[in-house]
Design a binder for these strands. Structure first.
Lengths: 215, 215
DNA sequence: GTTTCATTCAAACGTGTGTTTGAAACTATA
DNA sequence: TATAGTTTCAAACACACGTTTGAATGAAAC
């Protein structure tokens, strides 16, 4: 254990520890000493490798962001190649599937990164405001564009609204932010199994997307 | 201005300032000095009136929590009185309407409290884990129960799942946590008008709820 | 006017924060 | 083995944190 830990690169150990702790306690709630202690590393190592705590936060995101973006785009590429006019059902499936793969494959960061994204929505660090849109702008354009073609009865504006709702519900569900857990003692849902979450999510989101326009 | 500020109770000024700042910067990110400075109050006043920073956090929630719970329950009471077997459409409307009234009426805390709730999902302070379920358990039971009757083709478990998705999407939308804003430079949605949000939400959520069961 | 109580205030408390330092330890090249 | 470069380390830095203190101030009761 001590050996394998030693064998690992110091910077990677820091990233792994920080990723988990940032999810658990947020950026402000996670101290340098907690991170370095959890990574079994001297406290000066963070500044040595990442310059600052902000730099570490950025690095934690950058490690996962691009692989995830590439994954989601690869999925819609594959879909559109196999089916010239995919249905909303297919598109949502591809999107959910991306999050599922992210959660399943530790190389992509697993569920931890999904939870980190969910936290970032309500706790927007200035660093993200700049780097995330650059990385995910194309993802949104691709999926919203495909949905627009599949849902011609909706205005472009309304498609974006629904994609917004969809994304909120999906990330929140995968993140395990069991809203109901905050509201009642014994929620009847077990939000921890991603496969189950996905199976429950799909019909709900697809039906919501294809619903008649408002008004 | 100085007079009206002086006329207001000190403790209320602290609550008002803290409510806003907790939403903006989170619990850990909001310092006592920032709160008291923003409330134009001596720093010792927080401990004088609320005992501690934790006590203030609890007080910020408790001021809004019960009126909101009473409001949502009054809404479903009225619905069930006027309609013996309300449809999913009616129930979701009543739920959304509660959040809308909360957002519209400053006495209920306005949108600020909705945003605070949204933050609390991903940043669960120990204090909330204990006080929120006690306050909102009945709310969830009432709405989930009514939905169960309106959706007999779904298992109790699946109803809870969908109510979970619904709540996530709704609070996230009302909170103005525009997920897409994090992902693209110029989102096509303006998440700030609650009436508009509600109009867009309703068909999406209702369709999701009444969708055929998974599997 | 005096007394009593609640409230406000400036100042300081001890502790924890992110960051920096300069020497020690290690690794690889010569 | 000597040397150059990289990485680790204990210690300290200045500063911000939540909290406490004890005196000053205010208002109400007698």
């Amino acid at each position: 254990m001590a050996e394998s830990a030693k064998a690992q690169e110091t910077s990677v150990r820091i990233l792994d520890a920080a990723e988990i702790l940032f999810v658990e306690h947020g950026f402000d709630g996670t101290s340098m000493r907690l991170i370095t202690q959890s990574a079994a590393v001297n406290i000066a190592a963070v500044n040595y490798y990442f310059g600052s705590k902000d730099g570490l936060y950025r690095a934690v995101f950058e490690r996962r962001a691009e692989p995830f973006a590439r994954l989601t785009i690869a999925n819609i590429d594959a879909l559109e190649r196999s089916k010239p006019a995919p249905l909303a059902d297919d598109i949502v499936s591809a999107f959910i599937q991306s999050a599922l793969q992210l959660g399943a494959d530790p190389e992509y960061g697993g569920l931890t990164f999904v939870r980190l994204l969910a936290r970032a929505y309500v706790e927007p660090h200035p660093i993200l405001k700049e780097s995330m849109p650059r990385r995910y702008g194309e993802v949104v354009r691709r999926y919203a564009g495909a949905l627009q073609k599949a849902l011609p009865h909706l205005t472009e504006n309304e498609v974006h609204w629904r994609f917004h709702f969809l994304t909120s519900a999906m990330f929140s569900a995968f993140a395990g932010n069991n809203v109901l857990r905050l509201f009642m003692e014994q929620p009847k849902t077990n939000a921890r199994d991603p496969q189950l979450v996905a199976r429950m999510l799909l019909p709900f989101l697809v039906a919501g997307l294809v619903a008649p326009a408002a008004n």
